[in-house]
Simulated scan of single mutants.
Amino acid sequence: MTEQEISQISKQVVSDSKFWIGLIGVIGAIVGSILTILGNFALEWFKSKSQKELDKSRQKILKKMLEDPSFEWRKLSTLSAVVGCDEEMTKHHLIAIGARGSEDNGGLWGLISRHPLEEIRHKDS
């Protein structure tokens, strides 16, 4: 083998090596990006799952409180304190379980099944 052939072969090997190194780098960047995105989705899914479970528990407690026959209506401040939410979040949960505020006093809440809106129309007539 001549020196020129050896030089040409070595240049080809270096050229091929640069190509494969570059290709592996690009593939690594793509795989790393995909894994990062999937990891973020998984993290958000687990966060939202635990939040949904907490919301369901709070709604279950609120519904049980509003179904208690000893109370016609419940104070929003009491409901908020029991489930550990601020009043706005408590209202969100109350509406989700089918509750409504009293038309006579904005601080009282009850289930629509116990206090249907039709009663309001009949009283106003």
Results as ranks from 00 to 15, higher is better:
32 G>R: 05
93 H>K: 04
4 Q>P: 04
115 H>T: 02
107 G>T: 04
78 T>W: 10
31 V>K: 03
39 G>L: 02
31 V>N: 00
87 E>G: 00
26 V>Q: 09
37 I>E: 05
121 R>V: 14
30 I>V: 05
67 E>H: 04
13 V>N: 00
80 S>H: 09
57 S>N: 14
38 L>F: 12
92 H>P: 00
2 T>R: 09
12 Q>W: 07
62 L>A: 01
15 S>H: 03
18 K>M: 06
95 I>S: 07
42 A>F: 15
100 R>C: 08
44 E>N: 15
85 C>Q: 06
22 G>D: 04
37 I>M: 12
1 M>F: 07
27 I>G: 07
82 V>Y: 01
115 H>W: 02
117 L>R: 14
20 W>F: 13
115 H>L: 03
20 W>K: 02
70 S>D: 15
110 G>N: 02
48 S>V: 15
117 L>I: 14
58 R>Q: 06
11 K>D: 08
76 L>F: 04
6 I>E: 12
17 S>I: 01
116 P>K: 07
46 F>G: 06
60 K>Q: 08
114 R>L: 09
36 T>N: 12
67 E>I: 06
103 E>M: 11
3 E>I: 10
7 S>C: 11
38 L>P: 01
52 K>S: 15
6 I>P: 05
64 K>Q: 14
76 L>C: 03
72 E>I: 04
48 S>H: 15
32 G>Q: 05
73 W>L: 07
35 L>H: 07
109 W>D: 00
31 V>R: 06
